[in-house]
Design a protein around this nucleic acid. Structure first.
Lengths: 246, 246
DNA sequence: TCATGTTGTGCGCTATCCGCACATTGTTAT
DNA sequence: ATAACAATGTGCGGATAGCGCACAACATGA
């Protein structure tokens, strides 16, 4: 374990959650590092071209995108999904996304945005807790059951809204239902005013390789409409993708 | 300067250029680090969830995408460009991209792929040398002239193909032409079999904030066709975007 | 079987990073 | 104006962590 490297990555990561421009002291506060250490990390980032300094705040440069590209180039999945995502989003006039599991979170690996529906900025690389996101539940339901339970145990289940399921029992029965019905609808559990529906993306051999969803404002569609109008479109895309994915 | 952090970032970066799965010795060779150092970096990455190890090779995980997201969330530009890019790509049935300058390279900040045209995988985060890419020349032409020359001096101008312009004189006159005509066509200078045309993207105030291009196979369109058929579409998109960008 | 390449591990040395402290600057509030 | 506060830049002593080498073990293939 290289401590300096880990600290530097922590600094890099803390620019994510809503903090785009940060001062040295701000970074120190967010990461818990000593201010001098945070400063050394930021100077290193700037020297290497990953961050810029305007005399007051540090901000990341486009160079960090090359790190993400290193991952995107390593797997063909996002590239395969994107055109289908675009077509689906155009058809239903709502933003669609694909994600995979990474620890207890889901990570967006492809997205086609139609309009801004959530308060936070979602995009490729965004992370959400799996237990309360529609795609997360689809991916958990596809796992081995006790493996999924182990993952839930490691999750910190915060009630993000009054409707959020947090108890393990409730989540387990919900996962069982998702597993049985083949899709998941989450109704204002992640954010008030937001509903979403997700389906698994399977490979030719039937293995679940990702999840596909769309999120709408509650005023736009009821849960019933989600099921009768949007879900069939998602399942159609699911069917189109399956034969193309190894 | 934190040396350990810099070494770790070098390890992270070396997964980019065509090397998706790397062994410890491979990383050591690519980065020039000692094998033990490379090993320490990789173990750190794995411990933090940025890399996975299958007993033989290391590969990056989706977590590195969150680093790229930190940048994407900090600037509205990519999100603004994407729908126009999608529309344009659909209309001309060719892949389109937007990029900005980062040092002597251009970095793709948005892309809409229609088919695979180049041998290497291009996508958000990809880097190309500015001097020989159509978008790069557009961005260089938009700079202060001596600033652009300084940037060219710092570039290592390798003749990637027999057609590549490398001498400073040739590049300067080419930049002057691009500046004058408002677009740039590059004909097999980056890769044999590939032609591309690029235009600058301006903000409302006229400042050049990015470049937009499309690349086609030489069999698909002649230079004249690029100018008469594709260029007008690019300019149309350019005009649509200008009033929307601060 | 030998050669090659890779991994894991241990170890001594030294450079490096840590965390504190002090001086300075800029901003805000009284 | 002045005081209070927050943030920055810098220096320093000391401990620690990383460096690079070397050796042993293992796999692969000629």
């Amino acid at each position: 374990m290289m401590g300096g490297f880990a600290k530097g990555l922590a600094v890099l990561s803390c620019f994510g959650q809503g903090h785009e421009r940060l001062t040295i002291a701000g970074v120190a506060k967010l990461t818990g590092l000593d201010r001098a250490t945070a400063r050394r990390c930021l100077i290193t980032l700037e020297r290497l071209g990953f961050a810029s300094f305007d005399g007051r705040c540090y901000a990341l440069t486009a160079r960090v995108l090359s790190l993400g590209h290193a991952y995107l180039a390593s797997t063909p999945l996002p590239e395969q999904l994107q055109p289908f995502l675009d077509r689906l989003a155009g058809a239903i006039q709502e933003s669609c996304s694909c994600s995979i599991l990474d620890g207890t979170d889901i990570v967006y690996i492809a997205r086609s945005a139609q309009r801004r529906v959530m308060s936070i900025s979602l995009g490729v690389g965004s992370r959400l807790p799996a237990y309360c996101a529609s795609m997360g539940r689809v991916l958990l339901a596809a796992m081995d059951e006790d493996e999924a339970c182990g993952l839930l145990d490691r999750s910190t289940c915060t009630p993000l809204t009054p409707k959020t399921l947090v108890t393990r029992d409730a989540l387990r029965t919900e996962l069982a239902r998702v597993r049985h019905q083949g899709y998941c609808i989450v109704d204002e559990e992640l954010e008030i005013g937001l509903r979403s529906v997700a389906v698994p993306i399977r490979s030719r051999s039937g293995r679940v390789v990702a999840a596909l969803n769309t999120g709408v404002q509650t005023s736009r569609a009821s849960v019933a409409q989600l099921r009768t109008e949007l879900l069939p479109k998602l399942l159609e895309t699911q069917g189109q993708l399956a034969p193309l994915i190894v």
